[in-house]
């Protein structure tokens, strides 16, 4: 991978993170992050869909009439999402049950349409694919951080295994029920944005 492509892959992790900088895909970040496992699978599914829809749209970009481009993009994304959903149902049934409607809702994830419009419509297939991978992974990273925090503090477990020692509970420690509610996910996103901005002054808008 050339350094230019590597940069495409790595910027979404920090300076151009789709969730914390562009503030896209927030709703699924709130909905599927109560437990860590669905957050991981959701992150993976979005990464696959972003990467491949970027690839396909980039191959088609010279033939897509601009007047109907949004519809064309939607059809490609929807087809990929339905495929992912069907495959999950056939081969990893229990995971697909956990994600339930959220797999279908990947179609409405702004990150995917955002990358198609902003990148794949004007760039070659391979860089588009890498760009999709990077943005999907940047999104997955945030989901995993939120899922980790919420499951640990809200349920005292990670991936379903209890990790908070019983001695803590005997000493009066309690799981934070607030962490299970969607608003806490928003607060965790806010905290991540705060930390990220205090470390990267270039993200702060000039007054």
């Amino acid at each position: 991978m050339s350094s230019k492509n590597l940069k495409l892959f790595t910027t979404p992790f920090n300076l151009q993170n789709p969730v914390t900088v562009q503030v896209l895909g927030i709703c699924s970040a709130l909905a599927v992050t109560v437990k860590l496992k669905p957050a991981i699978v959701m992150g993976l599914s979005v990464t696959i869909v972003t990467a491949f829809s970027n690839l396909i749209i980039s191959y088609m970009r010279d033939y897509i009439p601009p007047r109907i481009r949004i519809i064309v993009q939607l059809v490609v994304v929807a087809a990929l999402v339905i495929l992912v959903d069907q495959i999950l149902r056939a081969f990893v049934y229990d995971v697909s049950k956990q994600l339930s409607v959220y797999v279908g809702l990947i179609i409405t994830n702004c990150i995917i349409m955002g990358r198609l419009e902003a990148y794949a419509m004007g760039n070659k297939p391979w860089p588009s694919f890498v760009d999709g991978l990077g943005n999907g992974a940047g999104y997955a990273m945030i989901l995993i951080i939120i899922g980790f925090t919420r499951e640990l503090l809200g349920s005292g477990s990670l991936l379903g295994h209890h990790v908070v020692p019983n001695a803590f509970f005997q000493a009066g420690y309690m799981n934070n029920g607030m962490m299970i509610m969607p608003p806490m996910a928003l607060i965790v996103v806010g905290l991540i944005i705060w930390i990220q901005r205090s470390k990267n002054p270039e993200l702060i808008e000039s007054k």
Partner: peptide, 19 residues
């Protein structure tokens, strides 16, 4: 535009039905 969208929709429908 009409041909493009018709062909695209039919191809996608076939693909998904097959899957």
């Amino acid at each position: 535009i009409y041909t493009f969208s018709s062909v695209m929709v039919i191809v996608v429908a076939l693909l998904l039905a097959l899957a």
